[in-house]
């Protein structure tokens, strides 16, 4: 785009962000403060993820942007257009073709590789904020690995309801040291974080924090020996592609409460239909 640097941010700012990313990779799961810039998109719309993507993007990269697992949601479209305009990079909706994937609220169903980087948009990087709102306090809790409060919260859930009542943004321990927010992905996606071959970078613009999970890092969803983390399973099959192992969105289809389930990962669904898998309502794309 005329008048702007490649991928919008100036090179000094990119260097500052890259230094924060390097530090984040060196201390897996630890939140690194960085001088987040004011972006031309609003806070809460993915300014952290956008800054991380802008800092790592090269001219040869192929970018995929998803929101809720889908490439065609309005904010994913808007961010993809932003980078197509400011960086001129090739974009794709195919998970397997992308070298950088920016996501909000999902991890793609297709397993990622060492050649890929997954960039998460993070609204609230502090996993303890509902238990302790003061970030001065939580910083100390992280320094001391004082995570008793979170274990008590989980214990209280089990004592009251017989199960942990966290369904998304389920807290994880990264490399056995830092309690970390996986961003608001459904707990269904948590197992994908563990020993993922791709580098995972997390950007929180408004809160001015970056953190990372390097490739093949141990990521454990918080649980107890006698109450192991049990990710919820899909409750049916995708009506379009018949998938039974993917995260499904529930779509209300009439005013009498009839529903159908479809894959939230639009690329996964289309790829399956291309390969001939069809669900009850499915048509080949």
């Amino acid at each position: 785009m005329k008048g702007y640097n490649f991928a919008y941010l100036d090179e000094q700012t990119k260097r500052m962000i890259r230094r924060a990313i390097l530090k984040a990779v060196a201390i897996p799961g630890h939140q690194i403060p960085f001088g987040a810039r004011e972006m031309p998109l609003p806070y809460g719309w993915g300014t952290g993820g956008i800054q991380v993507t802008a800092a790592i993007l090269g001219a040869d990269d192929v970018l995929k942007v998803i929101d809720q697992g889908a490439d065609d949601t309005t904010n994913a479209v808007s961010i993809r257009r932003f980078f197509a305009a400011t960086a001129g990079v090739r974009t794709t909706t195919r998970t397997a073709e992308a070298s950088v994937i920016q996501t909000r609220h999902r991890i793609p169903e297709t397993p990622l590789t060492e050649a890929q980087i997954l960039v998460y948009q993070v609204p609230q990087p502090e996993p303890l904020y509902r238990l302790e709102p003061s970030r001065s306090e939580t910083t100390q809790m992280h320094a001391l690995a004082d995570y008793g409060a979170m274990h008590v919260k989980l214990y209280e859930d089990i004592a009251r309801w017989g199960q942990v009542a966290i369904s998304y943004d389920y807290p994880v321990m990264v490399a056995g040291r830092y309690l970390t927010s996986p961003s608001p992905i459904p707990a269904f996606d948590n197992p994908k974080l563990h020993r993922m071959p791709a580098l995972q970078l997390f950007g929180a613009g408004r809160e001015k924090r970056i953190y990372a999970i390097p490739p093949y890092t141990d990521v454990r969803s918080l649980d107890f020996d006698d109450h192991p983390f049990a990710p919820p399973h899909a409750r049916g099959a995708c009506a379009l592609c018949g998938a039974t192992d993917a995260y499904l969105d529930e779509v209300v289809i009439d005013d009498r409460g009839r529903r159908m389930f479809v894959c939230s990962d639009t690329d996964h669904c289309a790829t399956r239909r291309d390969a001939g898998h069809l669900g009850a309502e499915g048509v080949a794309p």
Partner: peptide, 9 residues
């Protein structure tokens, strides 16, 4: 913004 994935869970 859409939050339907988290709302679904």
């Amino acid at each position: 913004l859409p939050h339907y994935v988290d709302f679904q869970s």
